[in-house]
């Protein structure tokens, strides 16, 4: 999968847990303050991503993610490692 396609998938999952549409999401947006997610839903996001893309992401790594950009980076790193 090319990077843009990967990011598209992740953004679509984020938009499922936020009230914003995928095209309204920006890298610098914070999951909590800007997207209105709480700590549980931001972890659930990473869990959904791991399941959807079959990635081995640890809970600690997921807990450290605070922004849309951070989510995209973490997923890209794991995806490259697993490819």
């Amino acid at each position: 999968m090319i990077r843009a396609e990967l990011e598209g998938k992740v953004l679509s999952l984020i938009s499922q847990l936020s009230t914003l549409k995928a095209h309204e999401l920006r890298r610098e947006q914070r999951l909590r303050e800007d997207l209105g997610m709480d700590s549980v839903s931001s972890m659930e996001l990473l869990s959904m991503v791991a399941e959807e893309l079959d990635l081995d992401i640890s809970v600690e790594d997921a807990a450290g993610i605070t922004t849309v950009g951070g989510t995209l980076e973490l997923v890209a790193q794991h995806y490259e490692r697993s490819a």
């Binding site: 659930e44 869990s47 959904m48 791991a50 081995d56 992401i57 997921a62």
Partner: peptide, 11 residues
């Protein structure tokens, strides 16, 4: 739980 499920355990 970490080893068996990773972040999937959240669900």
């Amino acid at each position: 739980l970490h080893e068996e499920q990773g972040v999937r355990v959240v669900r």
